[in-house]
């Protein structure tokens, strides 16, 4: 994204310097884009009333977050939310690739299960949270279940369409090489499907975060969502704004990590 083909055109000697210049220009334009947000926060800090019940100034957010950290709430909450999201994403990927692969490979199975799955998919994932809380009970298992239920569909659908668009030559090559089942999966299917699977996972990640936060809000299980809701119930505006920025950074980092992982995993295929 950062260094496009401009350095490739440069003479070999000037390559490093030009890349540095390029990166600097990029950083400057990003900074320019952030200026209004920074200006808003600074103005808010300068003109805002730190004791306002609705719009406390940004420095009070930091204080509120520091209080939470020293009370020992914040770090375990972030870790709890992260752990559920990560485990659920892995489970959803495994399940989605398995089921999606089977459905994509077998038209008969697709015809039988298609409409049922289609209905389950249209259920808004958040509505599953109260249902699961009543039927499974309020525990970690239920939280994992609802996140997996939300994150499953993008992976499943992408895998299915990936399997359907596999080039027939690939399958014929596998047959003429007499590959076993294991070799066929690891050498043909997984590499060919990797781009579609990873796209599905990237769509699924924000959904997983949303459902995880909602589950924590509704059941007050330990996590960022519960902290946010408690802060709101205590009318602690500074803490709400502070936690909101933590949640934003949380989502941003997870998305950026997945994007980096995707371009790293697709590098051998030259599709990054």
């Amino acid at each position: 994204m950062i260094a496009t083909d401009a350095p490739a055109l440069a003479v070999v000697g000037g390559r490093g310097r030009r890349r540095v210049l390029h990166a600097a220009a990029n950083a400057w334009s990003a900074l320019q884009g952030l200026l209004p947000l920074i200006a808003l926060l600074l103005l808010w800090q300068a003109l805002g009333d730190p004791h306002s019940p609705y719009f406390p100034s940004p420095s009070t957010w930091a204080t509120a977050l520091r209080d939470r950290t020293s009370a020992g709430d914040l770090v375990p909450a972030v870790l709890a939310t992260f752990q559920s999201v990560a485990v659920a994403l892995v489970l959803a990927t495994v399940l989605g690739v398995g089921i999606g692969g089977l459905i994509g490979a077998s038209p008969a199975l697709a015809r039988c299960l298609g409409p049922t799955l289609e209905f389950l998919r249209t259920l808004p994932p958040p509505t599953i949270v109260p249902v699961a809380a009543l039927i499974i009970g309020v525990d970690e298992k239920m939280k994992l279940f609802v996140i997996v239920f939300a994150a499953l569909w993008p992976v499943l659908l992408n895998t299915t369409s990936g399997v359907r668009s596999l080039h027939p030559t690939l399958l014929e090559a596998a047959r003429s090489l007499h590959l076993g089942v294991v070799a066929r999966v690891t050498k043909i299917f997984l590499p060919a499907l990797l781009p579609s699977i990873l796209t599905g996972v990237r769509v699924a990640a924000p959904l997983a975060i949303i459902v995880s936060l909602l589950a924590e809000m509704l059941t007050l299980m330990p996590g960022l969502g519960a902290l946010l809701l408690m802060a709101q119930r205590n009318f602690n505006a500074a803490e709400v704004f502070g936690l909101l920025s933590v949640v934003g950074a949380f989502g941003f980092i997870i998305n950026a990590a997945l994007a980096a992982f995707e371009s790293w995993a697709l590098m051998p295929q030259g599709r990054s």
Partner: peptide, 19 residues
């Protein structure tokens, strides 16, 4: 001036916005 700021706000989960 606003592109990057919007990019930063976009991934904010809607649920977190409710409180």
């Amino acid at each position: 001036f606003f592109g990057a700021s919007l990019e930063l706000l976009r991934p904010l989960p809607a649920v977190a916005f409710v409180p």
